[in-house]
Design a protein around this nucleic acid. Structure first.
Lengths: 166, 166
DNA sequence: CTTTCACCGGACAGGTTGCCCAGTGAAAAC
DNA sequence: GTTTTCACTGGGCAACCTGTCCGGTGAAAG
């Protein structure tokens, strides 16, 4: 299942961008706007999904609206050989939105949310209240000037593949 | 536009979870599986979206499949008063997937992707090649044991609101 | 020159959407 | 206690979209 970096062309890029801007749009409407046949859009979409370029269309839920307006990043230092256990532990904490193992200072980086700054303490306690975590450094998010985005990269990739061709 | 933390009940939670598991599902099919009337699901979904709980259904694109298999987090230290310019600068870099301003060590944290470790150098150069950025510390992601997720939190929130009631 | 392939334009049945409505039960307001 | 409010139900309707299949075309590859 090693996905071998599949390129996308301009049409693919436009499909993704269109989908990102108006997710509820249908294949037919897309084909109209892009000026291509419906079958083409359908085939491209199928390919993008089986390619793994487009993973899915899950709902984007705002933690703040759920009552978790505080976001933080925690850098964790792990005791040698405890990685597996720590990962399993963190996976059970709902407030842990994602977890990465990294190089550099610290061994893991995780994104947390909490109901308030006070509640963040509870979350952190739960996160680090586990053997194997030696130390944790937390950075609370104040502002989010660039929310998670992918479109600029998609456009970049679409352009690159064009240049590469011929 | 201050969204005032709206609670969700079990049905809302089930709708979101269902949508997350099978994004292409329609309102009618949802109503069948949840055992409620179609109009109810429709109304709930509308409410969740105008609530801001569900932001949308944009395509989830995998950077790796686009040719950007390397992810990294960079902690940036900013020169006093340069925040605005730095934000604007980083927003123009496609490889910057998100950017936060934080408390703690460093002033900003951003997520980067690159075509390779070597390419990461180019990205970092471009990111920090800007007046106002004093220092940058980069952590390369090796593994991603917990990919960005929201469902556990949704379930938590749905349960909480139940307990709160009565 | 022939094969291959992506795309086009069109067609079809079946399912779904958006919308509306009256009826019901329960909780809230009076 | 009575009335109002509100979410939900179950149903119906026209318009639309989806999945699917088809033959035809042009360009690129063999």
């Amino acid at each position: 299942m090693r996905e071998a970096t599949v390129g996308i062309d301009r049409l693919d890029g436009r499909i993704i961008v269109l989908l990102a801007r108006e997710p509820r749009i249908g294949v037919l409407e897309m084909s109209r706007r892009l000026g291509v046949a419906r079958g083409t859009v359908q085939a491209r979409l199928d390919r993008l999904q089986s390619n793994g370029v487009v993973r899915g269309f899950g709902p984007q839920v705002d933690p703040a609206a759920l009552g978790y307006p505080v976001t933080a990043f925690a850098t964790l230092e792990i005791r040698q050989g405890q990685g597996r256990d720590v990962r399993a532990h963190l996976a059970t904490v709902p407030e842990v939105l994602e977890l990465h193992t990294t190089t550099g200072t610290g061994d893991m980086l995780c994104r947390l949310v909490a109901r308030s700054n006070a509640d963040l303490q509870r979350v952190i306690d739960r996160v680090v209240g586990f053997d194997g975590i030696v130390r944790a450094a937390t950075a609370i998010v104040m502002e989010n000037p660039v929310p998670l985005r992918i479109i600029p990269l998609v456009e970049q990739a679409a352009q690159d593949s064009e240049k590469t061709q011929t």
